[in-house]
């Protein structure tokens, strides 16, 4: 296990100075929209919270964390805060696989196509799309989270944005529950799959949903993706621990203890694979973590887009 103080200080410092936990310049991190036809102005903002964009970097970072956990080198991690953010963030961005970046971007492009097919009017403005700060909240850096969340909420307010479409459970929870409580700003928040309005008979397949903790328990919306899939002719084969009783994939522990994360992951994957069906994830953290196990897994948006 890594010393949590070192990890928290590093992430908090990155968020304070660069507005994201990896210190990667936003111009390198958020590029998916460049070749995608999205309106730049409108009433409802697609707010990705940058979580899918982080997934290739999470994979790269945890690869090194796994290698040095419980070794003498682990204690030297604290010194990385003395490396200028631009150099550290750019270095990480350059070390990360282009293929993985494209895979992460394709999830967001699929979501844009799904919204368009559902006749949802929305716009995207990368300047307004920020990280929610949720990791600081989960790690207990309340002061850092509130400071960052207030910055994000104030920016949206200044731009006159009140309606948001989200794409992952962590950002959705932050905006729906935490922002009103800690920033005083409330937004009308919907996830993209709540807005799917089309039906199709193209599906004809069976899948097993891995409910993320935040959609399953904290936001109690596990029924929504199941209805979407039923409307596409896709059958969900359930495991015992699903919906409210879903089991964690272990992803949240990967920054502090990759070993623990893997233990929890292995148990969950065994359970999910017991159905013999491909696994569907609804969260970038779960998706990245489940992929590590070698299981057959894809994002809900990929499945919906393929079934359109």
């Amino acid at each position: 296990m890594y010393n949590p103080k070192i990890i928290i200080d590093l992430i908090a410092d990155n968020v304070r100075k660069t507005r994201n936990p990896f210190g990667i310049p936003k111009s390198m991190l958020n590029r998916w929209w460049r070749d995608t036809p999205v309106r730049p102005e409108g009433d409802t903002l697609l707010f990705t919270g940058l979580m899918y964009q982080f997934t290739p970097y999470i994979e790269k970072t945890t690869h090194y964390l796994e290698r040095y956990e419980d070794t003498k080198l682990a204690d030297y991690m604290g010194y990385s805060k003395y490396i200028p953010k631009f150099i550290a963030g750019t270095g990480l961005a350059l070390m990360t696989s282009g293929k993985e970046k494209k895979n992460a971007d394709s999830v967001l492009r699929n979501i844009v196509n799904i919204l368009a097919k559902s006749n949802v009017e929305f716009f995207y403005k990368p300047e307004l799309d920020d990280y929610s700060g949720i990791l600081l909240y989960d790690l207990g850096d309340q002061e850092g989270f509130v400071r960052h969340a207030k910055f994000v909420a104030a920016k949206l307010k200044r731009a006159g944005v009140r309606k948001l479409i989200t794409v992952d459970p962590h950002t959705t929870y932050a905006l729906k529950v935490l922002f009103p409580k800690y920033t005083g700003e409330s937004f009308d928040v919907k996830t993209y799959f709540e807005l799917v309005s089309f039906k199709s008979e193209n599906g004809g397949s069976r899948v097993t949903l891995h409910d993320p903790c935040f959609y399953g328990r904290y936001l109690e919306m596990s029924d929504v993706p199941r209805k979407v899939l039923a409307n596409l002719g896709i059958e969900c084969v359930e495991v015992i621990n699903s919906e409210h009783a879903t089991n964690c994939c272990g992803g949240p522990a990967e920054s502090v203890s990759p070993k623990l994360s893997k233990e929890v992951l292995d148990r969950r994957v065994e359970e999910l694979q017991s159905t013999g069906e491909p696994i569907i994830a609804l969260c970038p953290i779960c998706l990245g973590n489940l992929k590590k196990s070698g299981a057959q897994v894809e994002d809900l948006s990929t499945l919906i887009a393929r079934s359109m």
């Binding site: 296990m1 010393n3 949590p4 990890i7 989960d138 790690l139 207990g140 903790c213 328990r217 904290y218 009783a245 089991n247 964690c248 272990g250 949240p252 522990a253 502090v256 203890s257 623990l260 929890v264």
Partner: peptide
């Protein structure tokens, strides 16, 4: 340090 082993899964 043990506190940060918690996954915040809510079970």
């Amino acid at each position: 340090n043990e506190l940060w082993r918690c996954l915040h899964c809510g079970l």
